[in-house]
Nucleic acid binder design. Structure first.
Lengths: 109, 109
DNA sequence: TATTTATTTCGATTATATTGGAAATATGAA
DNA sequence: TTCATATTTCCAATATAATCGAAATAAATA
């Protein structure tokens, strides 16, 4: 992971609304949540939500899939893991420190 | 961890200069690095560095300790771990997913 | 005490992000 | 094709963050 990409992801997560969205999607797992459901559950205007989803998507922290008239968003664990790894890379002067991974069930690699 | 604190930490890390500082400190481990050394290695004015250190410190991502005329900064793994945990809390609809920890050597708890 | 060195605070300037209404697009149903 | 619904884009107003020179503070030494 390159620093620009890591910064983009962290900036995306560094906003209360977006962090809430991301955590909801992490908790929702594979199926994710539709934009409308998110907007309603956060009680924010669609335009505002859309702006934040775009940020998260641009940072590849979430993915979108269209299903009928709805767009379902899900957390992207790949990026998340790359980010965790990047943050703890070469830590502690080379002394053992175990960076870890997180995956949903069968996705585990 | 509360959302405001998590957001503060992520915002602090979501800046190229600060992320670089933080990673340098993660890599430096326990002893950390002095402000002067950091400013020099990043080739940024002291005032600018100071601003960023304050942000990181305010988010409790780093700690400061005075040693003679120098101030040594080190990464704060406690906050980092709390953050990683927060991001992956209750993930994947309750299906097993292992949030991780990271600690330097003997600090491991 | 005066001086040197390390670092921080102040403050003005500049740059970037956030918000949300209104208009646009896109999908499915009547 | 027309209508209703889901979502996004546009855009202008507003809010927040970053930069860095100069002045201030703080610690060690002469």
């Amino acid at each position: 992971m390159k620093i620009k990409i890591a910064t983009k992801a962290l900036t995306a997560l560094g906003h209360e609304t977006r962090l809430t969205i991301f955590r909801k999607l992490v908790q929702a797992g594979e199926p994710g949540m539709s934009a409308g459901t998110l907007a309603e559950s956060l009680r924010i205007p669609n335009a505002t939500l859309s702006f934040h989803l775009k940020e998260l998507n641009g940072a590849e922290l979430i993915t979108a899939r269209q299903e009928s008239r709805f767009i379902f968003y899900s957390a992207n664990f790949e990026t998340m893991n790359a980010l965790l790894k990047y943050l703890t890379e070469n830590c502690c002067e080379g002394v053992a420190c175990t960076p870890s991974e997180i995956y949903c069930n069968e996705e585990r690699s």
